[in-house]
Simulated scan of single mutants.
Amino acid sequence: MSPHATRWTGFGLLTAVVLAGTGWYVTTEVVRAQADQAAPSQVEVADDVLDGPHVLFRGTEPGELYGRVSAVALDDLAGPREVTPAVCDRVDTDGETTVCLHTKRGVVTSYAAEVLDDAWQTTASWPLPGIPSRTRLSPEGLVATTSFVTGHSYAATGFSTETTVHRADGSDVSGNLEDFTLLVDGERIAPVDRNVWGVTFADETTFYATVQSQSLGRTWLARGDLDERTLVTLLDGVECPSLSPDGTRLAFKHDAREPGAATPHWTPAVLDLDTMETTVLDGEERNVDDQIAWLDDATLLYGLPRADEPGTTDVWALPADGATAPVVAIPQAWSPSVVRG
C-alpha cells in the first residue's frame, strides 16, 4: 500500500472513531436527558388549587413534570401546586380559557398556539412560524402571539418577529402587525426592518406593543388599534409592555446598559399613562428578559433563570414602588398568569 493510501486509510479510521465517539456521546446525552425527564419531580402537589384565585405558570422543576402547566394559590405562591395535563412553552389564562404556545419536536420541529378550555381540551389551534416568545389573552377572548422567525432579508443583522392577534376560536383578526400603518410623531413611516412584539390588551380594539427599527436605531412603545389597523408611537425605549390591572400603568423592561456596552441590560420599569413619567425599579439589578406580569396593582412578576441549573427558572416578585428588592415568589416556574376571581 502506498504512503498516500496509508494516510487516507488512517484518516478514514480516525474519522470513524471520532464519529463513533460523537454518536456514543449524543446517544448517551439523549438517554440521560430522557431519564432526567422521566424522574419523579420533587414538588408538593394538590388537587383543588384551580378552584380558587391562583397563578397559572409553566413548571420548570426537573423530572416528569417539567414543562407542565401548573397552578399555585394566590395567597400561597410557594405552596403546593396543582398540575394540569398541558405542556407549554408560554401560557396565559383568564381562568376559563387558556392559551398555550408549544414546540412540537420531531424529525421536523414545528410550533403551534392552542386554546384550551377549563377541562384542558384543545378548542382551537393554529401554526406559529417560529419559536414561541410571548402571548397574551384579552378579557374579550383575543389572543396575541409573538414568534421569532427566519427568512426575512434583514434577519442576518438582527432578529425578526411575527406578532398576530387571533380570536379564541382560531380565526385571524390582524394578520402580521408589521403590516399595520406605523405613525411616528404623526408621520407615516414604513422601515423595511420593523418588528412588533410584546402585546398587552387595553380593550377589545386597543393594545400596546413594542415596535422597533434597527436601521433607524429606534424602539418605541406604540398604541395599536385593531379596527383602524394603526400603530401610533408614544415613547422611546419601552420593550414588552404589560398593562396594570387598574389600567393606569405599564410595566416594561428598560434598557439600562452602560454607555458603549454592546448588549442590552434590561431592568424593570413602570410608566404612568397619565403623566407619561417612568420609574425605573433599581431594586432589581439582574438582567430581566421577560414580559412582566402584574400580581396586583402594587407588585410585578417575572421569570429569571437559575445560573447553576440550566433549564430551571423561578418567578420573582418585585414591588412597583421602585425602592424594594425582589424575592422569589414561585420557585421552579415560568410565564406566570394571575387569576384573581
Rank of each mutant, 00 (worst) to 15 (best):
R32H: 11
Q214K: 02
S160V: 08
D203R: 02
Y25I: 13
I131Q: 12
A298G: 11
L14P: 02
G63C: 11
L50T: 01
A190E: 13
G158T: 12
E239R: 04
D179H: 09
W197G: 11
D274N: 02
R223I: 07
F201W: 09
T313R: 07
V55P: 05
R90E: 12
Q34M: 14
T27H: 09
G141D: 14
W316M: 11
S174Q: 02
T164D: 03
T164H: 04
W24D: 00
P40Y: 10
R68H: 10
E277T: 10
L101V: 08
R218H: 01
V72D: 04
H152L: 14
V26G: 07
D297Y: 03
R90S: 08
T275D: 11
C240Y: 13
R188P: 10
D47W: 00
E239Y: 09
I189T: 07
D227K: 07
T15C: 15
A38E: 12
A325T: 10
G79W: 09
D36K: 01
T278Y: 12
G23H: 09
T84L: 13
A190L: 14
S215G: 11
S153R: 09
V165F: 08
D282V: 14
G10Q: 08
L101W: 07
T109R: 06
P241R: 00
G12V: 11
